[in-house]
Design a binder for these strands. Structure first.
Lengths: 221, 221
DNA sequence: CACTACTTGACACTGAGTGCCATCGATAGC
DNA sequence: GCTATCGATGGCACTCAGTGTCAAGTAGTG
């Protein structure tokens, strides 16, 4: 039996080590830039061996991306918790907002997150891994959306694309996140981003949606 | 002065070498899988040195991704060529369709392309690079869209997100591309994917679009 | 104390990617 | 016809990411 809820002593020790490594990594990467830092540099600061680093993180990119990766699970669970009759644009907007509000409430934690976001968006290698993560979330969101609206995800492109539009909104928000932005400003960015995709999100969720009215189809009707 | 248009002899020789390397690479990668093939394997088949490979391709991923990368430029130029008053959903649909129809007209070339697409979508490392490329196209498309509709891309999230939606559609199309699909089937997939995002594409392009009607905003009006 | 499970560090190894230099072949100028 | 030059190539050595393996240390448990 575990001593407390589900975190054993060993578990907490592991998290401590991981956090130590992450702190050292983020500090170096944010100041010197991604390519100018080697794993040896990181473990030298953290006072551990190179091998230990790779026991905790799958790659150098992983340290950075995982810092924001927990967001993904939050988004999916938040979407699942939204009322079933809610419009997709509203449910997804609140789902995306969940981790953002979590970032924004403590200013120091928010600033740290913002710096990591900038590092990711400005470093091609990190950006690629970040998008890879997003795809996993997208699949989770798509499955949830398909269930909510009783759609077949293997034939209907709506769930995947709706989830993708939520990710586009997230990207747009993070892209415009400026230093010193408070929670109010982030909420404003979120509302604006979702205003763009909302028409598609809400038009497509309905099974009896009107197709074929589109002009100039590649396939003549 | 060049002997013919803009391709010198040396230029054509370079392209020939690149094609030889690409053929060897694609053949091996498609049969054995991405991780099971080393660059040494590739150059052994192509009969060249390891060093030469990296003079033509920036990375192992690059060989595969560049095979489809020329699509990007086509899409942007096609969008620029569409009539200025055309609805965004129509213009973008035809822009995306351009490289797809180019793929689909010769069955053998189409099948080769389809296999490469599957390899990319099924290999995480390749998928990440593929998305990295898409980001570049997205910026190009966004710039073109901003110009078409006289929007300021630094403040208005529409151009970037609209370009992103076009990429989502492209992803959905490629994801559903099955063996033996002819041009007609690809056109059908394209129409269906764009039917999903069209409402947002066409609602957002208009400067005087209605915002604030969205229910349950994060910011109370 | 002995046993077990887990973590760590050290070493060696593969493979990607880069810098450097010697060489070869084609072309231009004498 | 000879040579200087330029670009492409190959070979070599190097850095760095990432992995497998093994020995040692450090808990908890009987």
């Amino acid at each position: 039996m575990a001593t407390r809820s589900d975190t054993t002593l060993a578990e907490r020790k592991r998290q401590l080590v991981a956090e130590e490594l992450r702190n050292a990594a983020l500090m170096l990467l944010a100041t010197r830039g991604f390519d100018a830092v080697t794993v040896d540099d990181i473990v030298a600061i953290a006072g551990m061996s190179r091998r230990t680093f790779f026991r905790y993180f799958a790659s150098k990119e992983d340290v950075v991306v995982r810092f924001l990766a927990d967001m993904g699970a939050d988004v999916v669970t938040e979407l699942a918790a939204r009322p079933k009759n809610e419009a997709p644009s509203v449910a997804l907007r609140h789902a995306i907002w969940r981790p953002l509000s979590g970032c924004a409430d403590q200013p120091d934690h928010a600033e740290r997150s913002r710096i990591v976001v900038r590092l990711i968006l400005d470093t091609p290698a990190l950006h690629a891994r970040w998008l890879e993560r997003q795809i996993q979330w997208r699949s989770g969101l798509a499955a949830e959306l398909a269930a909510r609206h009783d759609l077949d995800p293997s034939t209907d492109p709506y769930p995947q694309m709706a989830a993708g539009m939520a990710m586009l909104a997230l990207d747009a928000i993070l892209q415009q996140w400026r230093p010193g932005d408070d929670e109010h400003r982030l909420a404003e960015l979120t509302d604006r981003a979702f205003a763009v995709v909302a028409p598609a999100l809400d038009a497509g969720a309905d099974k009896r949606r009107a197709v074929g009215r589109a002009p100039d189809l590649l396939l003549a009707p």
